[in-house]
Write a protein that binds this DNA or RNA. Structure first.
Lengths: 347, 347
DNA sequence: TTGAAAGCGCTAACAT
DNA sequence: ATGTTAGCGCTTTCAA
């Protein structure tokens, strides 16, 4: 059977196509009776609009692209996407994930972007864009919204957490617990895109300086710069070794995110370290893993961040100007069982 | 600036629009020189096709809908989606998640489905559909692919794990370890859609019978049928109480999925139970949490399942018939630190 | 190998 | 409040 079109409905209801269009879209200036008749006809014929035809005629695609780094199933990405989806899908938008696996995916996307009339807005999640790309964004006719990007440049609106402030609160906690030597651990195996990783380690560096630690009291263990390696427990024994061989052993440790932190805690305990007795460990995100393993961590709510970004996208697409286009989402410390006073702090 | 259209490119290249269309889509019967000229012109003008216009003219939408229960960020859904996305996006398809939060979302989706020319295929993830909906599916002109659905009825192809076989292997393991009394724990707080939950508990029930347990040696603790309640640790002390108050205390426990299993293990240990000394616990999924908490579990690979479903969608959309339309994906036991021989088994 | 022309199904002026 | 009509940007016969 051929597709039911708007003109079939018009015929069935005994009105013109434009009346059907108006009636079914809930526009005003249509007689309630007529509308009822049209709706009944549409129901009878099981009619639904062709999105392509609507888009082509109206110029609105009712699609929003979401640019995601590395994968969609990571804790942050999937939850941020969830929030975006929740808001936009309720308004009838198709929310289309665009996962960037490598730099060339991103380059290709931006190459096609300037002329792209295939989406009504794009939401960019966790990318540290170069100047070229920022310029492309700023020249775009469709709104571009940032989510957890290091800078708001090029974006018409954004929502993000303050990685700096978050790391500062972690560093302050460790400081107040009397820890004199700190370490920061990056995720052992890196992905091609690592923008929030960088934000955090930079936040940590700035925070320790601010709080008054000397450079020699602070150790940063960078990620092993090869990707694709299975991130097994072995990576963490390497990290433990580095921790042990430090000139002065750090007792307060910040880790890039909960998954790493939990794995590190497990490895250190396996090696006989007492956590939180000897050493304190703080994660980041407050994901399920932090809860189940009793990890002290920094809580953030990516679903809500996603909602905020999407709401700003919505008002921008309506041609409005959001009251607060550039918002910072809160983070908070969650104290669990991996932090405690430094052993020497009483001495 | 107005949008660059195919006719701009045609003008720039000094050819007709149809030639541009052919050249840029890589069709044959176009002179290599002409194609080069067209490509150069397109590049210069930064041209890219309007998907709406292409869809409308060609009848192919280049979109695939993915029907997901409850949320997209759950472990299974996000990983299954990842696999689907990976395969389809590489072929130029937009992959559009459609999350069903409640029954009425599903009803509405199916109501609009029969006439839907807005997607080229739909992939249905983890729904136990009623006969009405199965009938709608089977009458559809676009291919419908199932992913982890209890039945293949109504689907043109599918990929799924065998929850029954998986549970049987878990039950057999516990049996061979000498556990005489088993329990199955459903997720304490339920979501509106619970199709794989049901598959598993049914698999468990069938498996214990098959292996020879008597009904009085088996306890099933159903989920608390209220949704929206925060799934805190309290739920698990309730479960522990039920376990304790059982006529005969179960020593082999299967849990619906890893998240619940880990939380239960934590609670039981807090209450002083020795795991795996006194009691063995087996999860399901082999998610990060199982790894980090040392949980024995049943491994499955939803990304690969998603890939398989998507590949079948692809060949169906091409009008081919997949070699094996209905595939079962493997699962396997992963032994970790929550299972061991029953205490009495030596006696 | 290329071009001309007729739609695809809808929206949005503009009339009435 | 409703109808008429001209496209939206592309694909696809059909001719040349």
């Amino acid at each position: 059977m051929a597709r039911t079109t708007i003109s079939n409905v018009a015929e069935e209801a005994g009105v013109s196509v434009s009346t059907v269009s108006r009636a079914l879209r809930g526009l005003d200036k249509v007689n309630p009776d007529t509308r009822k008749r049209v709706e009944a006809a549409a129901e009878r014929l099981n009619f639904s609009f062709s999105k392509s035809a609507s888009s082509l005629a109206s110029g609105k695609t009712m699609k929003v692209a979401v640019l995601l780094p590395n994968e969609i199933s990571s804790w942050f990405n999937s939850h941020a996407f969830e929030g975006i989806y929740e808001v936009l899908s309720k308004q009838g938008y198709d929310v289309i994930p665009n996962v960037m696996w490598e730099q060339r995916d991103l380059d290709r996307f931006f190459k096609a972007l300037p002329n792209n009339q295939n989406v009504d807005a794009v939401i960019v999640v966790s990318f540290d864009l170069d100047d070229d790309k920022k310029r492309i964004l700023s020249e775009l006719t469709v709104p571009v919204i940032g989510l957890n990007n290091p800078s708001d440049e090029g974006f018409d609106a954004s929502a993000r957490i303050d990685d700096f402030a978050a790391m500062r609160s972690a560093v302050r906690l460790l400081h107040s617990l009397g820890h004199r030597n700190l370490a920061y651990i990056e995720q052992p195996v890196t992905s091609p895109f690592t923008c929030s990783a960088e934000a955090r380690v930079n936040g940590f560096r700035a925070a320790v300086r601010e709080v008054g630690y000397r450079d020699e009291d602070v150790l940063v263990i960078p990620s092993v710069k090869r990707s694709g390696v299975p991130g097994g427990q072995e990576e963490y024994s390497g990290i433990a070794a580095q921790l042990l061989s430090a000139p002065v052993r750090p007792t307060g440790i910040c880790v890039e995110h909960d998954g790493c932190a939990a794995a590190l805690v497990k490895e250190l305990r396996r090696l006989g370290w007492d956590i939180p007795g000897e050493v304190s460990v703080i994660g980041f995100d407050d994901s399920d893993i932090a809860d189940i393993t009793g990890l002290t961590t920094i809580h953030q709510d990516p679903v809500e961040t996603g909602r905020q970004a999407a709401m700003r996208a919505l008002s921008l697409m309506r041609g409005e100007c959001p009251e607060t286009p550039y918002g910072v989402m809160p983070t908070s410390m969650v104290l669990r069982d991996t932090t405690g006073p430094a052993a020497e702090s009483e001495a």
